[in-house]
Design a protein around this nucleic acid. Sequence first.
DNA 1: GGCTTCCTGCAACTCATTTGCATGAGTGTG
DNA 2: CACACTCATGCAAATGAGTTGCAGGAAGCC
Lengths: 152, 152
Amino acid sequence: MPAKSLPSIAARKATADGLIRDAGARLTSPRSAVLTLLLAADHALTHQEITDTLSVDLAVDRVTVYRVLEWLVEQGLAHRIAGEDRVWRFSVSRGKGAGARHDHRHAHFACTQCGQTFCLGDMPADVKMKLPAGFRTETVELTLRGVCSHCR
Amino acid sequence: MPAKSLPSIAARKATADGLIRDAGARLTSPRSAVLTLLLAADHALTHQEITDTLSVDLAVDRVTVYRVLEWLVEQGLAHRIAGEDRVWRFSVSRGKGAGARHDHRHAHFACTQCGQTFCLGDMPADVKMKLPAGFRTETVELTLRGVCSHCR
DNA sequence: GGCTTCCTGCAACTCATTTGCATGAGTGTG
DNA sequence: CACACTCATGCAAATGAGTTGCAGGAAGCC
């Protein structure tokens, strides 16, 4: 076996299953499969990418995938990203332990070529804008658009 | 008549018609009506808002509105904003005279209550993020999410 | 007024996402 | 270990924004 330092699929599945258990919910194969996939992904995945990948060795209904994703977001295990193409992308919420809610303080990078979206590190804290009177900011969303390393 | 200092509808229509003429295109009532509406709006309008408003005194086909909006964006007279609800919003491109293209350097504010989106001033120039190797940024998108003055 | 070309309106379509409902599978209990 | 009680899944059908093809209509130019 190759001297890979990356977590194996099995390890990721174990992580995924643990997270699902910790959420106090039933451990089902669709949940496990989707979360394992998200944990292994290097970029935010669309619903389509997920169903396509899963269909190779496990038939999961499209609707179920939608519901699993929705549930993951509710649990704070993943977050959804809106893009220019009106398609949701999903990525695990990393940092701050398991149920890291509100970790939406990081920026995103969207490749205009391949459409892939990546999570970046925390955004600069100094994104303060002067607002019209009466406006109150709750969250800030920062998306860089350009060409990713794979497409240049 | 009230001592309004805001441009009258007639004046806006004149502005709209001038902009359309300057673009070297035919002046048609759908184009004029849509652009007049956008010029008068204090927030970015959805396709739905536009057709609903127009239908009061001028029947314009949904598809035509879509095409007019697309055309306005192509001409640099308007820009389209993607939101969380997978609906495009359109706003006139202000500043730098008529055909102000690339004025996408401003931030947006999206109200989580009513869904309305507003254009803010220029974003802080210092939104530089460290990117993974090989990534090249072309445009930056900054959206503040919170409660607008009307909803608080 | 007549011509040419671009624009509009209509109908039908695409495609991501959602909803309703009946069946089926986890999980705690006896 | 079987049983029941939910909760989750699968299927079918619906929703809703946005798109496409095509034929008729109207701006702009002479």
